[in-house]
Design a protein around this nucleic acid. Sequence first.
DNA 1: ATGTCGCATTCCATGCGA
Length: 260
Amino acid sequence: MIVASWNINSVRLRLPLLLEYLKARAPDVLCLQELKCTDEQFPRGEIEDAGYNALIHGQKSWNGVAILSKRPLEETQRGLPGVEDEQSRYLEALTQDETGKAMRVASIYLPNGNPAGTEKTAYKYAWMDRLCAHARELLALEEPLVLAGDYNVIPAPEDVRDPQAWLGDALFLPETRQRFRALVNLGFTDALRACTDAGGLYTFWDYQAGAWQKNNGIRIDHLLLSPQAADRLASVAIDKDMRAKEKPSDHVPIRAQFRN
DNA sequence: ATGTCGCATTCCATGCGA
């Protein structure tokens, strides 16, 4: 079974690329972030014609997350539990692998938090704390689970081409990284790091300043696995080729393969 | 080198968020 995650930066603008990706990689599940559209504006028909069910938590203009699956989706959570969040950043569902075994997936668009030291940073930290609390509950279920998404967190210096340049950024601040570690330390496995220690593996390159041409990237899109999912992990890939396409997203998909 | 996008609107120019 393949579970992938992609911050698509406008699903309407990126629809041709999305359909190309679904055909090329045929993920069983694809978690999307930054839809930048409402549920009504989501191109559901085209996605269904491509062979996918779609669960959508949209929002006008900004944010928005979705889960696509080849098999039925049963929504288990829309928005993190607790405080009502006007920003659409969390969606969770139960689906199945090709043999019918249950797999729980969440599509996460964690707040950016910049500029550092503002109320946006405070919102990011509070959101991470809420995610951590919910993730703890999910782990207690002891089932295969993938928390997939754009975490807006650079976990370590080897995950950024130029660490010095990001020292004061909300994606790389010690408080941000500490919270990410706290989440992982509940018992999750960072899927990519289970497969390699190599640095220079990035999922985002800014549109500005020729970042892609200079490979000035960061690793901020992550697949966190429960023990029951980690035990089945076979491989992880970053679909870097998607950044070289016409009209690319600034993020590329990350994709994990699981054994049955 | 803050050098780009995508969205929205008091709408074809500008502000916001990333």
